[in-house]
Design a protein around this nucleic acid. Structure first.
Length: 580
DNA sequence: GCCGTTTTCGGCCCGACTGTTTTCAGTCG
């Protein structure tokens, strides 16, 4: 069994144990172990299992080591099988209903024998729920509403779309009297690829009018909570927006706290405890009264950076706050200097009207110039991509000539590199002959068909294409479309190793639906020496802006300027592509 | 179940809001 499967089972065990009313800390131990496991690569796991040293990993002790080894070696764990049988499947599904947690679901099961969602609905309609102790009419209503909107409530939203939703709201909030500061927090600020809800923070000494405004807007389809410091509303589409109002002097603490991640916060509070302090969303205070405050007496408006400093840590950018090594790095002052949008000098992998794009070559090159970039790579689809009007060899040669002409012209446009997004055919062959590929400045190789191959065959297919001497970079490594289509099965580590060994680039496809290769893989890939290119995969001039989403991925993946090919100046890129 | 210059036990992050009660448990982030 591979690590993802094992981690998923450990997570499931944690959920099942909740229904058993297990010790919450024991439950967390399983969740922690699942996380620790996901941060190891397959080779490390194999080695640790064989040498029986898994328990040297933080978060995995003797007990979990045994269970993980059992799952790793023969894919079975009697403890898990037994646990699974003791909890009806419908109970787990009910967790998605807002307001219902393990304890309440357990009560419904014990008292009313409810073990499926249809049974739950019926019991609500018959008014049997409200008769239970600890339940009432409101709970019954909330369950019914939750059931009706189960799909909408549990769906996530692309970062890109959530950002578009929240921006006008932020603008309106800033106009309110008494709103001193308005900021985004949560996963949106950490730039996670999808978000479950939106968190907004406002600094003000008068929360009431702000709360009143927030809960009375047309776009707030329903109000799920309204208090002095916190209110929550839902949009018609189902997404929840939380607003918190905090006095300005506590704003830095609130930003840190509500930006998360939860795991990052837990680590911070632990460090605070070890130093004799207690950290919450309002303050960092001495925990025993003997200690002095870590901040100068008259210091006002303490920032996140001040708090990190007081804990002995360098400032950690929000994108890194996932408890994936950033705390350790900050303790040693070894955090990366993350790449920024302004470091970008050009882009590769863009389409024109020649294939399935909406703008011409010249329009794309002018738009790139308008973005402040020096160069743009055009990589229209190759001949096998009929669905995308892929270019045959003749049309590609015409395009190469047109690009040469534009580059010679004195027009105010970015330098154009001629390329192709060359289909990887079934056995890893490329879609153009070497004679044609040689005429191009660069070649992106991508998969656009036959997604359902098994992992081994797919990996072999991609590696063969990437090893081709004329391939420059790999496009969208897994083909995933976030919230729409699953990735095809690939062994990412093998492909990364292949790219490093052959001096190839793996793109960060910056289309908000793709963001592929995933940010979680980049830190280790970077350590191996992998170079990336942040590619908008633009099908129109507007899509060039997708680079911002790609920058998010790079930053979450700990990448620095030098790790990103398209931060290089034009002359250096030309030399690299010429020398191959 | 994990962890440990307070190591074999006793901690384990912490607070707001809701709904149901009347002081609090459960949920959520």
């Amino acid at each position: 069994m591979n690590k993802q499967d094992i981690a998923a089972i450990l997570e499931e065990i944690a959920v099942l144990m909740e229904f058993q009313g297990e010790n919450p800390f024991k439950i967390r131990a399983y969740q922690n172990a699942a996380r620790s496991l996901e941060d190891l690569n397959e080779e490390e796991i194999t080695e640790l299992v064989e040498s029986k040293k898994l328990s040297s990993v933080k978060g995995i002790g003797k007990g979990l080591e045994e269970k993980i080894i059992a799952l790793y070696t023969d894919g079975k764990l009697p403890f898990y099988e037994k646990l699974k049988k003791s909890v009806p499947k419908g109970l787990q599904e009910m967790l998605a209903i807002p307001g219902l947690g393990a304890k309440k679901i357990k009560t419904l099961y014990d008292e009313l024998k409810i073990k499926t969602i249809p049974q739950l609905k019926k019991a609500c309609e018959e008014g049997r729920i409200s008769e239970l102790e600890g339940f009432g009419n409101k709970t019954e209503e909330n369950i019914l509403r939750g059931l009706e909107n189960l799909k909408e409530y549990s769906k996530r939203t692309l970062w890109w779309e959530a950002r578009e939703i929240v921006e006008p709201i932020l603008e309106d909030l800033k106009k309110l009297k008494g709103a001193e500061k308005v900021e985004i927090a949560g996963s949106l600020r950490r730039k996670l690829e999808t978000v479950g809800d939106i968190d907004i923070l406002v600094a003000s000494s008068k929360p009431e009018p702000i709360m009143k405004w927030f809960t009375s807007q047309d776009w707030a389809a329903s109000i799920t909570a309204k208090g002095k410091t916190k209110s929550s509303v839902r949009l018609a589409e189902g997404m929840q927006i939380d607003l918190r109002v905090i006095p300005e002097e506590q704003f830095g603490f609130a930003r840190l706290y509500f930006t998360g991640s939860k795991e990052h916060n837990i680590r911070l509070r632990k460090i605070a405890n070890e130093k004799g302090y207690s950290l919450n969303e309002y303050e960092l205070s001495p925990s025993d009264g003997k200690n002095k405050s870590p901040f100068p007496k008259n210091k006002k408006n303490i920032s996140e950076a001040d708090i990190y400093k007081a804990l002995g840590l360098a400032y950690i950018p929000p994108e890194l706050r996932e408890d994936r090594g950033e705390i350790e790095a900050a303790l040693k002052d070894k955090l990366p200097e993350l790449v920024e949008f302004d470091d970008i000098k050009g882009v590769f992998h863009n389409h024109t009207t020649a294939s399935d794009g909406h703008n011409t070559l010249e329009e794309m090159a002018r738009a790139a110039k308008d973005m402040g970039w020096d160069y743009i790579g055009i990589a229209d689809h190759s001949q096998s991509s009929y669905q995308a009007n892929g270019l045959d060899e003749e049309r590609l040669i015409e395009q190469i000539e047109e690009i040469k002409k534009l580059n010679r012209s004195k027009k105010n446009i970015a330098h154009i590199f001629s390329g192709t997004e060359c289909d990887i055919l079934n056995e890893g062959e490329l879609d153009f002959s070497d004679d044609i590929l040689k005429e191009l400045d660069y070649v992106v190789v991508s998969i656009h068909r036959r997604f359902k191959m098994d992992e081994k065959a797919m990996t072999k297919r991609i590696i063969k294409a990437l090893e081709h001497p004329l391939a420059t970079m790999l496009g969208h490594m897994t083909g995933r479309l976030l919230l729409r289509r699953e990735p095809y099965a690939v062994n990412a580590e093998k492909i990364i190793d292949c790219a490093v060994a052959n001096g190839k680039i793996i793109e960060i496809n910056a289309n908000p639906y793709r963001l592929d290769m995933d940010w979680r893989l980049w830190n280790k890939a970077k350590e191996k020496g992998l170079l990336t290119s942040i590619n908008p995969d633009a099908h129109s001039t507007e899509h060039l802006a997708f680079v911002e989403a790609g920058i998010n991925v790079a930053r979450k993946g700990w990448l620095e300027k030098d790790d990103v090919f398209n931060t290089w100046p034009l002359a250096k890129v030309k030399k690299f592509l010429k020398d191959g």
